[in-house]
């Protein structure tokens, strides 16, 4: 008998490895992909922690983590990924004004998807305890609007998606997320231990993103500037403003941009994706047009939803300006380059 060839011991793919590669080196970006699966990973005040060892050597937490699974070389579809149509637009409803981040396109599209029962539940990010952004599950338009706007801090919202998926039900789900979160959702859909993900996640709306902030650090910086949490909204106005804007309890504050930037997650530096290229639709700010969004329709489902919204007069849409698309592509390409360089540097010391 021929002895079996010695196969190398499989690399563990559980919590231990997640801790070693991502959490302990401080690279976690608080997307929440590892949360809500099990009791070993917890999220408090904007930070992921693992109080106890998990005895398993393979598990979903590591498999879902976008920092652990990061693929910086993925450029086959161009810097901004697959695009069926590029638009600029805004929501027409007066209800949304003053509550949404820019044009309210994200909130309007989600609300419509719920109204139309295309999905029955959506995972969004809203301020929770101590103002910490966190995932919430909404089933109606009012819930979506309650979560409109952003404070630019990690909220671990995919925790809520994992929780929804762990329940014994079958209704379709939507999720809004940053590029890292969109990547994690793709990993969830592909993971053999989570077959319900591919079946149930029907709509993924991605946001544009260059960096995110840890809430704990932001909260402390705000406090140092005399701003009390929770924030109702925050913004990075386009250059050369050089400030971070924060609205709290109806009052308005400005913080120096460099102090805020210095807080950003170290893990964001390795992120290659600016425009959530795995989403059905991606939405960002519209250059030179305050109060408007740039929208990239990437899948037929995404394009269909956009069309429906425009047809119902809920969105005002215009084709994207070529110049602004050029800038976006350049910015996305630059982000990929920075990420590649950062990863190289980490790999080589």
């Amino acid at each position: 008998m021929v002895p079996p060839a010695a196969s190398p011991a499989p690399q563990p793919t559980g919590l231990e490895r997640l801790l070693a590669e991502v959490i302990n080196p401080g690279l976690c970006v608080a997307c929440g992909a590892c949360l809500g699966l099990c009791p070993h990973l917890i999220f408090l005040d904007g930070q992921v922690a693992a109080p106890d060892a998990c005895g398993l050597t393979s598990g979903r937490c590591y498999g879902f983590c976008p920092v652990a699974q990061r693929d910086v070389s993925r450029e086959s579809q161009g810097p901004i990924g697959p695009v069926l149509g590029a638009w600029q637009g805004r929501a027409t409803s007066k209800d949304l004004q003053g509550r949404v981040q820019y044009g309210g396109v994200v909130s309007e599209l989600l609300a419509l998807a719920l109204d139309q029962s295309m999905v029955r539940e959506a995972v969004v990010t809203a301020a929770g305890l101590r103002g910490t952004p966190q995932g919430i599950r909404v089933t109606e338009r009012t819930g979506v609007l309650g979560a409109a706007g952003s404070v630019y801090a990690g909220g671990g919202a995919l925790s809520s998606l994992n929780q929804a998926l762990s329940e014994d039900s079958n209704h379709p789900l939507a999720v809004v997320g940053l590029p890292c979160q969109v990547q994690a959702v793709q990993a969830m859909k592909a993971h053999p231990q989570q077959p319900q993900a591919a079946r149930r996640i029907h709509l993924v709306i991605g946001l544009f993103c260059t960096m995110n902030l840890p809430w704990r650090g932001l909260r402390k910086l705000l406090a140092r500037h005399g701003v009390q949490a929770p924030l109702s909204r925050a913004d990075f106005p386009p250059p050369p403003a050089g400030i971070f804007q924060a609205w709290s309890n109806g009052s308005y504050h400005e913080l120096p941009l460099d102090q805020v930037r210095a807080l950003s997650y170290p893990g964001c530096a390795g992120c290659p994706d600016l425009t959530s290229d795995g989403a059905d639709l991606s939405v960002g700010a519209c250059e030179g047009k305050p109060g408007w969004n740039t929208i990239l329709a990437r899948t037929h489902a995404g394009a269909g939803l956009l069309e429906l919204a425009a047809g119902k007069g809920l969105l005002e849409l215009e084709p994207a300006q070529p110049a602004s698309m050029e800038h976006l592509t350049q910015a996305a390409s630059d982000k990929r380059k920075r990420a590649t360089a950062w990863s190289e540097e980490r790999r080589h010391g």
Binding site: L37, C38, D52, G55, L56, R60
Partner: peptide, 15 residues
């Protein structure tokens, strides 16, 4: 009860 599966791994008795 999830027992030893990923998603728990005997959280109550082990931890």
């Amino acid at each position: 009860c999830r027992g030893e599966d990923c998603g728990c791994d005997r959280f109550c008795t082990r931890v």
